[in-house]
Nucleic acid binder design. Sequence first.
DNA 1: AGGGAGGATTGGAACGATCCAGACGAAGTG
DNA 2: CACTTCGTCTGGATCGTTCCAATCCTCCCT
Lengths: 349, 349
Amino acid sequence: MAERNGRAPTLATVADEAGVSRQTVSNALNSPHLLRADTLERVQRAIETLGYSPNRAARSLRTRSSHLIGLRIDPAAEGTANALMDRFLHSLVDSSRDAGYHVLLFSSPAEEPGETGAAAPDPVAVYSDLLRSTAVDAFVITDTYRGNPQAGWLEAHQAPFVAFGRPWDDPDATHAWVDVDGRAGVSLAVEHLVERGHTRIAWIGWQRGSFIGEDRRAGWLDTMHAHHLPTSRLSARGDDTLDFGRRAARALLESERPTAFVCASDTIAMGVLHALDGADLRAGRDIAVVGFDDSIAAQVVPPGLTSVRQPLEQVAIEIIGLLDKRLSHQPVLEQGLLLSPTLVVRGSS
Amino acid sequence: MAERNGRAPTLATVADEAGVSRQTVSNALNSPHLLRADTLERVQRAIETLGYSPNRAARSLRTRSSHLIGLRIDPAAEGTANALMDRFLHSLVDSSRDAGYHVLLFSSPAEEPGETGAAAPDPVAVYSDLLRSTAVDAFVITDTYRGNPQAGWLEAHQAPFVAFGRPWDDPDATHAWVDVDGRAGVSLAVEHLVERGHTRIAWIGWQRGSFIGEDRRAGWLDTMHAHHLPTSRLSARGDDTLDFGRRAARALLESERPTAFVCASDTIAMGVLHALDGADLRAGRDIAVVGFDDSIAAQVVPPGLTSVRQPLEQVAIEIIGLLDKRLSHQPVLEQGLLLSPTLVVRGSS
DNA sequence: AGGGAGGATTGGAACGATCCAGACGAAGTG
DNA sequence: CACTTCGTCTGGATCGTTCCAATCCTCCCT
């Protein structure tokens, strides 16, 4: 931690201390194999003594790479059990660190409806700007649930990025992605319920038009058919809200008497729990409920909500792996990677 | 978005295009008042045409400031309803953007117990390194709940930072901080319950030794005394876990028959709900429960958990405000800022 | 008309690292 | 012994911006 005349030590300082040239110190850091063993050690000792860390700005300027990865963080809707991001973010930061990167968070300025109209906030402008100013080397994009303009733009501008989520709507996409097999996840859930003896298993999911929603629903449909179980009128579609979950469950309970609910999200599943609470039914004893995402709410709500858990830690690792390959100009063999979720069984089933 | 020979435009490119010198373009960006109106407009047009954004690395190298704010993101314990971070993070990113900063996330390498012992992972090393390499201009630190080594170290090294949380254990601390008045929050909760006619109001909180825990508990104690209500044997202390909440509630229900529970956290409150669920009691009808944090779980659990909500958005704004002042060498008048939480009333009370 | 004053603009130097081409020895080869 | 080869190390140029001091221009005053 020693400093000289109040300013942080530079390469030159270290070079003086070790009695070598700047370039040699640089090599000691970046290509140690080029140095003779004793020189290397001498330099390392000097670095240690002075408490030297290379200046990122200077390095970044010269090498044209910041070793930062950009991630847009979207305004999460309150009340939607969307703590997904939390787990993913941790994992992403950890994986990045291991690969020598840091994560830079950014957000888009809110598109306030009552704004002075002229400056239409281009959702892609932020990406463009970060890239042009060499603030980040690459992006991780996460919001591919209903197509996504960023992916197209980034791909067109040859910006390095990896997506969490398949390019559902663009079969020609060539960018790298990692995704979780939602269909297989829901299938796990249905199998689990069938094993427990349920035959009337209802689906509560999202509106048509959500690719992810349709994929998950297909998991329900497939598995029900495979077991020759009825599906007609056992399915509801709506928004990803507590309230919709509650209303849908109430309606289904009155008309179709299902014994189990499989939901497209934990938010909806929590809505179902509300409906049961209102009808004096108990989840797990009278009716089974399964959610999707293994959110914190699922973990703590009594009696525990069975839920499909995405392997977010693994997703993050794979994403950084792909990104790192891309950035170090190694050939990327697999374009996309589909990971399997697991089912966490709790009291609600 | 026009580019010249495949490389991003620089100041010089813009200068050529506008027929002025580099420095003038620089001034157009940083001190527009120095330019004549027509020159300014000419330069701006050139910038627009070329799609120029200043190179951050170069700027950062010259000005010795990265316009990045570092935030350590800790491995959140699963199952603890700690989605606090999520709201805070969003807010912090937004406020930072408005002030011209970005947020850089980092984490400490996990201290794996089975590691080759020698390299003891110094919790402060990461901060030190980021600072020396001028990767960030300042830090926001959040984990001050039981003293915090970083704050001391950062203060000693004159590193700019603002803490979310009071310097409980260090009356001599001179750094800036923003915190939420937990005591007042719990007091709100107790007042609310008293209004509803409760007189036997129990407290379930954390172990002695947590400053925050004692502060919140004091809110309960104060308010109970103010209303001449009994407190003896109505208080339990333990870990911040579901399980402790459940056990404590069960024990209190058997021995003291409280009609309401006030908890130090939503996690504990959810544990209480588990206990009620097991005893066939209903929260809100038979027994009132109030949590702390207004986590997502509190929002979605049936019948809704009344909870003390921290004004995290405001906290983030104030933190960035203080940081910005500090970094732009304006005098910081207030050293600390204590914000008031609110009570969100839901079905559980 | 000459001399300041002050605003507008400019070119050179610097920030701290890496790239590049070349220098220096020591070792190997004909 | 001269010549090449290879491993090691070095100095100058460079990345794109801002700082600094100097210059130019315009306008006003005497």
